[in-house]
Design a protein around this nucleic acid. Sequence first.
DNA 1: GTCAATAGTTTGTCTTGACATATTTACGTC
DNA 2: GACGTAAATATGTCAAGACAAACTATTGAC
Lengths: 246, 246
Amino acid sequence: MSQLLNIPIDRSSPVPLYHQVVQGIEGMIRSGALEPGSRLENEIELASRLNLSRPTMRKAMDELVRAGLLVRKRGVGTQVVASQVRRPLELSSLNDDLLRTGQKPSTRVLSFSHGPGQEEQRTTLQLPAGVGVYHFTRLRSVGNKPLALMENWVRDDVAQLSEETLSERGMYDLLRTAGVNFRLAQQRIGAAVADEYQAGLLGCEPGAALVTMERTAVDDTGRNIETGHHVYRADSYTFEMTLVQR
Amino acid sequence: MSQLLNIPIDRSSPVPLYHQVVQGIEGMIRSGALEPGSRLENEIELASRLNLSRPTMRKAMDELVRAGLLVRKRGVGTQVVASQVRRPLELSSLNDDLLRTGQKPSTRVLSFSHGPGQEEQRTTLQLPAGVGVYHFTRLRSVGNKPLALMENWVRDDVAQLSEETLSERGMYDLLRTAGVNFRLAQQRIGAAVADEYQAGLLGCEPGAALVTMERTAVDDTGRNIETGHHVYRADSYTFEMTLVQR
DNA sequence: GTCAATAGTTTGTCTTGACATATTTACGTC
DNA sequence: GACGTAAATATGTCAAGACAAACTATTGAC
């Protein structure tokens, strides 16, 4: 028996109709109103009830499938993914994630410089002549417990960064406020053991396991905006993600 | 100056038209025929030239954006992502990845058992009564160099697994051959240090950094098919991925 | 009870068409 | 050359419609 979905659709909203459906179904899944394993009504029925076209409904369903929340099969129907749903993989930052889960991160800027930058980062960021680099290192803690040590390079023609603002707000938040529209990031996750410098800052023993992450983020005009090297205490942080079949 | 794309479209092919476009553009990017940073012709033009509808062309473009290969902006156009494109995140296995990059992995099955399974894995897999579990541990090497130690549990009603077949082919390959249609996987990546057992098998020192990965994969009817714990030598393996803004 | 054929169900693919929005370019005026 | 406005460009959103393919359920024959 498929469940009837009660999704409010507001045609005067600036939020696209397909996205209102996405948010409605996501909300119902997260709240438990749509139970894992349950079958949804078919897409034609649902579109009709919400006065939406089938392609609009299909676009919403596709996004939910891509987010790992639904599975669909021709002739069978649509089902809420049974296993506990984790946050789907999307372009967000550590600070975004911590705030979203109600934690209170704090940031200490350990170093900050602004200049032409070194060749390696200029190459990674693919900077044109005349564009400089902000380079800074931060320690992020939750409560009083250190969690991550982050070194970043940001091109200097998209925002004005300072030590003050970096200790108060997340880097991505600052860049978005300055008008950067991030579209994608290349990321590499690995492992390392803490050296004495890292151990001292992160509050663990030298030799302890660290999760490492290197990332380069791109905006909607194709520019590489920032690149970074992060290390996280392995006892406090893992990367969780949903992989979806193409 | 936008480049003209030469993509062969075969309407008699079982491959969907939108997917032929995806493969054509992907191939051109990978071969260098479409250079990083270059602008593509607009979607209406391109659709018209290939005798495709605009929604079909847009579906192909959307997939390429999601794969991290293109960026698009209203009023501006479509551009090949400038930074070196890595493999987009999709549901594949270690064996798949190694084979794709031309490496020759080999597998040694260290243990294999078949039975009702333990409560923890039964819960993770959400098995109905009467369905049992294959449980096995494998060591995967490239050349003669150990790379990964993998412990998996697979529900026993989707395929017949054996020690022989597991040493010859990848687990995902066997399951797909048996008719499993994987749709998504939940995955958690972290770090640990090698204990003596792991170090002995992986050919590294105890205390060396290991990348850890836990995963549960789901098929197209919503069933949890397999769950696994893997550890990789950190000096030989990282997880690379493209994150895309939703 | 089993099996094959048929009908029903639902998603997947593709097309035509239109309007909205964000950005860039062109043009006229100063 | 700078500035403001309009036009052009290109993607983003939405709709209606049709056919195809994979799956499940039903029916009739044996």
